[in-house]
Structure formats: C-alpha cells, structure tokens
Amino acid sequence: MRMKITYVRGDATQPIGPGPKIIAHVSNDSGGWGAGFVVALSRRWPQPEAAYRQWYRDGTNGGFALGAVQLVGVEDGLWVANMIGQHGIRSRARTTAPVRYDAVDQALASLAERALALSASVHMPRIGCGLAGGRWAEIEPLIGHRLTDQGVPVTVYDLP
C-alpha cells in the first residue's frame, strides 16, 4: 500500500496520531551526541542518549556502524530510532557534508522492517539535513522508497 509523507508544523519529539510510534533521527559514527535534534530528544528522555553512548562504546561487536539502527523504548508504544547515517561531525575545515546517503538508505530499510513488525508509524524531523549537511531532495526519495512505499506511515515535522 503506497502512502505519501505527511508534513506538519510541530515538534517531532511529540508525535501525533494513534497507535505505536517510532521517532527516527540520524546520528554520527563518532560517538558525538550534544547538538541538533538529539538535544531535544535528551530533554524529553534520557534513554536514547544513554543507549547510543553504550552502543558506541560496544563498537562493531555491538553492531555500531554506518547504516545500523538502534531502537530504544522511551514510553509505552513509543521508541526512538538511533540511525547511524553520518560519518564524523561537521567542522569548519570539512569540505564535504558528513551525511552518508547510502547509510541513511540502509538504516531506513531496517527501520521499515521494525516499524512494520510493530505496526508503528514513523515520525521525524528532516533527517540528515541539519548538522549532517544533507539535502532533503536526496533524503525524501529514500524515505518514500524504504518506508511509505512499503506501507509505513511517515510524518515529517518542521518546527513552527
């Protein structure tokens, strides 16, 4: 069942609608957590940051790598998906954006399987387009192909 992405003005840490929900975001592969959307996540729940930091410490033995997804329960029927889709962090000296579209694509494919298994909708800001430096014109088709085309409802939030 092909669906369309729903765009709303609002806060992705307060997902709307009925049923189970997953809040998805893109993280880096260097263990950094403290800027961008993750700040808002950490204000609401400590679990996603704690789980990400432990996952990073566990390294590849724990499955931490570009394209990987970690689902963290934060409330009954609500999870946060830490998706590793960014290589390193943005700096003034860096000439290329840290986003890795192939890793985001791989993470979204895994996310789709989990969302379908949980009968969950997926909620997100414009992932990969903030500190990761990606372009929405590149990310949006990946979300369509991996999630909405597979029948996963997706809501994208833009802050007012």
Rank of each mutant, 00 (worst) to 15 (best):
D29N: 11
Y157M: 01
V80E: 00
F64P: 04
T6H: 13
E49G: 05
L66G: 12
L131M: 03
E140Q: 13
P46Q: 04
A12Q: 10
Y157F: 06
E75M: 10
G130N: 03
Q106S: 14
S110G: 15
A68R: 06
A117F: 10
V80P: 05
A137E: 15
S30E: 10
A12P: 10
R90S: 14
Y56I: 02
V39T: 14
G88W: 05
V69W: 05
A109H: 13
Y56C: 11
Q106D: 13
G77T: 09
A50F: 04
V74H: 04
F37Q: 09
I22Q: 00
G10Y: 11
S110T: 15
W33P: 08
G130W: 03
M83Y: 00
L111V: 03
A51V: 08
C129N: 10
V69T: 08
V69Y: 02
G19S: 01
D158W: 01
A65D: 12
L118D: 04
A81D: 08
V26L: 05
P48Y: 02
G63H: 05
R135K: 12
L142K: 09
N82Q: 05
D149I: 05
V26C: 14
R100T: 07
P153S: 07
G32H: 13
Y7N: 10
E140K: 11
A109L: 11
G67S: 10
G77Q: 08
R53L: 13
R135L: 10
D158Q: 10
G59F: 01
S27R: 06
R44H: 11
P20R: 09
G133N: 08
Q86F: 00
L142T: 08
G32N: 11
I143D: 02
R2F: 14
L147A: 02
M1R: 15
A112K: 01
Y56S: 07
V104P: 05
V8G: 06
L111N: 11
Q54D: 15
G134R: 04
V74L: 06
F64L: 03
R9L: 13
L118V: 09
L142Y: 12
I143W: 00
V74D: 01
T96S: 15
Q47D: 13
Y7E: 15
I143Y: 02
N61A: 15
P46C: 04
E140T: 01
L66C: 08
P46G: 08
D105N: 10
L41K: 01
A50N: 12
I5Y: 07
A115N: 03
A65H: 14
P48Q: 04
H25S: 02
I143G: 04
R94K: 13
W79A: 03
R126H: 14
P20T: 13
P48N: 04
A65E: 13
W45H: 06
P153G: 07
V72K: 02
P98N: 06
V69I: 10
G63Y: 05
A137H: 13
D105Q: 12
R53E: 12
A65C: 12
M124N: 03
R94W: 08
P141K: 00
I139Y: 00
G151L: 06
S91C: 00
